[in-house]
Simulated scan of single mutants.
Amino acid sequence: MASFYNLNGKKLQRQYRDYISEFKQWKHKTHAKQYLIYPENIDKHLSIDETALSKGELYTIITNKKAKGKKGSIVAICAGTKVEPIIEQLLKIPSKIRNKVKEITLDMANSMKTIARVCFPKATQVTDRFHVQKLALEALQDIRIKHRWEAIDRENNSIKLAKQKKILFIPETLDNGDTRKQLLARSRYLLYKAPSNWTQNQDFRSKILFQQYPDIKKAFDLVQNLRNIFNQAKSIKIAYTRLAQWYHQVEISGFKAFNTVANTIYNNYRSILNYFNNRSTNAAAESFNAKIKAFRAQFRGVKNVEFFLFRLTNIFA
């Protein structure tokens, strides 16, 4: 706009912030960097998550799912993830309003669970299924990465030996033209997908990968079995039984990383099973985080946090 009217862009931006936008008269300006609370946006179904606004500084954000990422979405924005200050601010909302909340979706962080339990005591906590699946996927990728480092070491040693013998090093290639190092690197994304979503090349690569590395195949099956529980189980009772069976499969597999995942699920199984009541996820919170990142990108970063929050809450609160 400044360019179109042949104005100084930075000066126009400053004038907009200080005079046109009414930012200086904003009633929340003095405490915006610490907390922003909008009790009128509280509804039966909420999400709680954390996001970085500027320079990696985390903020805890509570959103109203019913608003679908539009006006009325923001219930609270609090600096940091420390439990006590956030609870202190949320408890200023009358208990009658807070008790309206019947369900709140969150990740497996203990801080989020504590905030939800203390501030919204009538709400059922639902652990986001995608955070659970992400843990299992990370355990699978951990096994792939270990094999990749081993393949890189073997190839480097073979190159070194070939130089010592003054011969040309020719790496072993598999049926699809990949070396072992390339196979393990290029299999990263196919392991995130269900087999039904693989392309023809990915399907061919997976057959070679699983033939060469049976432990990756076993770990991949564990991930798919966990995904199928969330997709197919129709009730808490069925899900509980199938999770117990999955836990047993992990114990038999002997994978240390998956044992950690299984123990995490065991410690959070009540809130994980609550997913099967209404099949609620934290997708609304993740979507809202994406909106914040897009908004931040328009600013080319956040120089003035208060002004950023002012514009954010004008649009979404």
Rank of each mutant, 00 (worst) to 15 (best):
Q211E: 14
I236H: 03
Y213S: 10
G254V: 12
A239C: 05
T173E: 10
K193A: 01
D175N: 07
Y240S: 10
R270P: 04
Y247K: 15
K237E: 09
I208E: 10
S196P: 00
S196G: 04
I170P: 01
R279G: 09
H248F: 09
A262S: 15
H248S: 08
P171I: 03
I170N: 01
T260M: 14
Y240T: 04
F230D: 12
D203M: 09
N277F: 06
D221F: 00
R296K: 14
F276Q: 02
S196F: 08
S287R: 14
Q245F: 11
I216D: 10
Y192K: 12
R300E: 03
K193S: 07
P214H: 01
N304M: 10
Y266P: 00
D175I: 10
E251F: 01
Q182F: 02
Y275A: 07
N304T: 05
I216F: 01
T241R: 12
N259A: 08
A257C: 14
I208M: 06
R300G: 04
Q164H: 05
D215W: 01
Q202W: 02
F220Y: 15
I252N: 05
G301K: 09
A285R: 02
A297Y: 09
L243K: 06
T260C: 14
N268V: 06
Q245I: 13
S287H: 12
W246G: 02
L183P: 02
P171E: 10
N289A: 10
P214I: 01
T260N: 15
N225D: 15
L191V: 06
K293E: 05
E172I: 02
N201L: 05
N176H: 00
I216T: 08
N267M: 03
Y269T: 08
A185R: 08
N277D: 05
I167R: 01
W198I: 03
L226W: 05
E286H: 10
A294G: 11
D178L: 00
Q212H: 04
L209Y: 00
I272P: 05
N274P: 07
T199E: 00
Y213G: 10
R180K: 07
R279K: 15
R205L: 10
I216A: 11
F288Q: 04
R242Q: 15
Q298F: 09
I265K: 03
A290V: 12
F295H: 13
F299Q: 14
S271Q: 12
V305E: 14
I265C: 13
Q232T: 15
L174G: 09
S271K: 11
N263H: 07
L222I: 09
E306P: 13
F276N: 05
L191M: 06
F169M: 01
F288C: 02
R279H: 15
Y192A: 13
S187K: 00
F288V: 11
D221A: 13
L184W: 03
K163W: 01
N304K: 12
S187L: 05
E251K: 15
I252P: 02
E306C: 12
I167C: 00
A194I: 11
K207V: 04
F169Q: 02
R227V: 13
D203Q: 13
K234R: 07
G301I: 03
W198H: 14
N231Q: 15
K207M: 03
K218Q: 15
L191F: 02
Y189W: 10
N263S: 11
T281E: 07
K163P: 00
L190D: 03
K181Y: 03
F204H: 09
D215G: 02
A239Y: 00
K181A: 06
